[in-house]
Simulated assay, not measured.
Amino acid sequence: MRLVLRSFHPFRRFDFFRAIRSLAIALVLPLAALSAVHAQQLPPGAKQPTDFPRAKLTAGMFVIDAAVAASDADREQGLMYRSKLAPNEGMLFVFNENAVHCFWMKNTLIPLSIAFIRADGTITDIDEMQAETTDNHCPHNNGVYALEMSKGWFASKGIKPGMKIQGLPQPH
């Protein structure tokens, strides 16, 4: 049996760390590219989620961080292209007329619950909506607001028709 002793060479250790660094870069770059591609899925002219004005609403003891869609373009985009919502985050749709306002889920990637609300803040109807469908979701009553939250949010919090949402901005 022959024993071979190799002398320690400091550059071999450097090569090991260079390999680790190269591996880390090889793993991180595709993830960064994937994030960039995901962020670019918004069509030209669409608002980023952070570009919508915000309102703090309350439903019972729950505080809601709502993006506000009060213009035609903002209401048309709504929560389209979003892949997630924070636990108490939603979108408030503000209309200029007291009417039946219907919704659908085209290009909406996450299932949502929607509460239809009168001008005085009273919830009239709540409906569950499946992602990426074109089914119409219409309230039985006229209203000025609609509040979209993650699917099941209203039921999980015990929020029902007849209850009020506080902090609603005035329609224009």
Results as ranks from 00 to 15, higher is better:
Arg2Cys: 07
Leu5Ala: 12
Arg6Ala: 13
Phe8Met: 11
Phe8Asn: 13
Pro10Gly: 07
Arg12Leu: 13
Arg12Lys: 11
Arg13His: 12
Phe14Asn: 09
Asp15Tyr: 15
Arg18Asp: 05
Ile20Thr: 09
Ile20Ser: 00
Ile20Gly: 02
Arg21Asp: 06
Ile25Gln: 03
Ala26Ile: 00
Ala26Gln: 00
Ala26Asn: 01
Val28Trp: 00
Leu29Met: 12
Leu29Val: 15
Leu31Gly: 00
Gln41Asn: 13
Leu42Lys: 07
Leu42Ile: 08
Leu42Asp: 03
Gly45Ser: 10
Gly45Ala: 06
Gly45Met: 00
Ala46Pro: 09
Ala46Arg: 08
Lys47Glu: 09
Lys47Asp: 05
Gln48His: 15
Pro49Thr: 13
Asp51Ile: 12
Ala55Glu: 12
Lys56Phe: 09
Leu57Glu: 13
Leu57Met: 06
Thr58Lys: 14
Phe62Trp: 13
Phe62Asp: 15
Val63Phe: 06
Ile64Pro: 02
Asp65Trp: 01
Asp72Gln: 14
Ala73Gln: 15
Asp74Phe: 02
Gly78Leu: 11
Met80His: 03
Arg82Trp: 08
Arg82Glu: 13
Pro87Asn: 00
Asn88Leu: 09
Glu89Ser: 14
Gly90Ser: 05
Leu92Trp: 09
Phe93Arg: 02
Phe93Gln: 05
Val94Asn: 02
Val94Arg: 01
Val94Met: 03
Val94His: 00
Asn96Tyr: 02
Glu97Lys: 13
Ala99Tyr: 12
Cys102Thr: 11
Cys102His: 08
Trp104Gly: 08
Asn107Lys: 07
Thr108Gly: 04
Thr108His: 01
Thr108Ala: 01
Ser113His: 07
Ile114Cys: 01
Phe116Thr: 07
Thr122Leu: 00
Ile123Trp: 00
Asp125Cys: 07
Ile126Pro: 09
Glu128Leu: 04
Met129Thr: 04
Gln130Asn: 12
Ala131Met: 04
Thr133Gln: 05
Asp135Tyr: 11
Asp135Gly: 08
Asn136Met: 15
His137Ala: 07
Cys138Gly: 11
Pro139Arg: 08
Asn141Asp: 14
Asn142Arg: 11
Tyr145Gly: 05
Ala146Trp: 01
Glu148His: 09
Gly152Gln: 06
Gly152Cys: 04
Lys157Tyr: 10
Ile159His: 04
Pro161Lys: 10
Met163Tyr: 04
Lys164Trp: 04
Lys164Asp: 11
Ile165Cys: 07
Gln166Trp: 02
Gln170His: 05
Gln170Gly: 01
His172Asp: 13
